[in-house]
Design a protein around this nucleic acid. Structure first.
Lengths: 126, 126
DNA sequence: CCGGATCCGGTAGGATACTG
DNA sequence: CAGTATCCTACCGGATCCGG
């Protein structure tokens, strides 16, 4: 049943890939990525506005993680009031491009998902 | 700075899309999706083997969620011992295809991510 | 025996207040 | 304005039991 030529990685690097997937397959990571891709360089507060619903703690944690992973740059301007800019690195942009398919999928299919959800909850209530 | 023609959804459906993204951008969801895409129909225990590191509880929760979202079918064979098959729906397969780009990205760039991580931790220790 | 529901301890995450 | 510290909740994971 194994598909011959899709997107399955070689067995050797499988664990590494899974680890990276587990890291980037995070809703805040994806949403930060999307916000930075759409709006370009953003300051912390502005980023928080676009990634609606995120707490400061999670946003801080997420951008730090993304910085560590080489997905974003974090530029601190030593002025008062503080000014910190976040921007995608080339690596981050390439990940954004890779996620593009998922965005388009969500855009196209969110109605189906919602319909399935409704049918499922109805089936479980009845 | 807004990019004119990438993968940015229309403003109106933006919230819906974000909601779906937040739902599917989950590491277990992605890994279950990958496992089912690679190996086809799987029983619960077998699925747990391929999605290494997942607890039964989280696997149950994840597949139930995916079932509710219309991504997988859950077929209970009323036999003893119990036999439950999980398989991707067409919608699930289409999401798998969308995630394909992310997998390929991870396959290609995991070394860069790891290098960035090392450099970052070194910079923070020194 | 398999799938999963339950109880319980640990930890990740949200809200708020405070510092530079 | 950006980030930290604190508290507190809710969810996550492991072990165990149960129903079939």
């Amino acid at each position: 049943m194994r598909k011959e030529k899709t997107c399955i990685p070689a067995p050797a690097v499988d664990a590494l890939v899974r680890e990276v997937i587990a890291r980037v397959a995070d809703k805040w990571t994806m949403l930060v990525l999307g916000a930075l891709e759409e709006h370009g360089t953003l300051r912390f507060t502005r980023l928080a506005e676009f990634v609606e619903g995120v707490s400061q703690k999670m946003l801080t944690k997420t951008v730090r993680q993304m910085e560590a992973d080489g997905l974003v740059t974090r530029t601190v301007h030593p002025v008062i009031p503080p000014h910190v800019d976040y921007a995608l690195t080339p690596l981050g942009r390439s990940l954004g491009a890779a996620f593009c398919g998922v965005w388009k999928w969500a855009e196209k299919n969110h109605a189906k998902v919602e319909a399935s959800r409704k049918a499922f909850s109805k089936k479980h209530s009845g």
